[in-house]
């Protein structure tokens, strides 16, 4: 299946793009996706980031679906 992934802040700088479509196996979990991305983008390994699925912060065990909007969020620094 295909997943749409959004990148923000310093993460978009590491990936050098703001979004991409990634092909993964069916029933891919968030932790599996994180590992795929950390392999693809070396800079992500040492970084602490959160993942929002459909605009809500998610846990690693969740299974992803092709309709999900997935966003990688670096530490917040508003205000």
């Amino acid at each position: 299946m295909e997943l749409k992934i959004l990148y923000f802040g310093m993460i978009a700088e590491i990936t050098q793009k703001k979004e991409e479509i990634l092909s993964v196996q069916e029933k891919c979990s968030l932790i599996e996706l994180k590992n795929i991305l950390k392999n693809e983008y070396q800079g992500l390994g040492s970084l602490s980031f959160k993942v929002a699925i459909d605009r809500k912060i998610s846990t690693d065990s969740i299974l992803l679906d092709s309709t999900n909007e997935i966003a990688l969020l670096p530490p917040f620094s508003g205000g």
Partner: peptide, 11 residues
């Protein structure tokens, strides 16, 4: 709450 929960990023 704003500082800790809202996804805003400062460069």
């Amino acid at each position: 709450k704003i500082k800790s929960e809202v996804p805003v990023f400062g460069k």
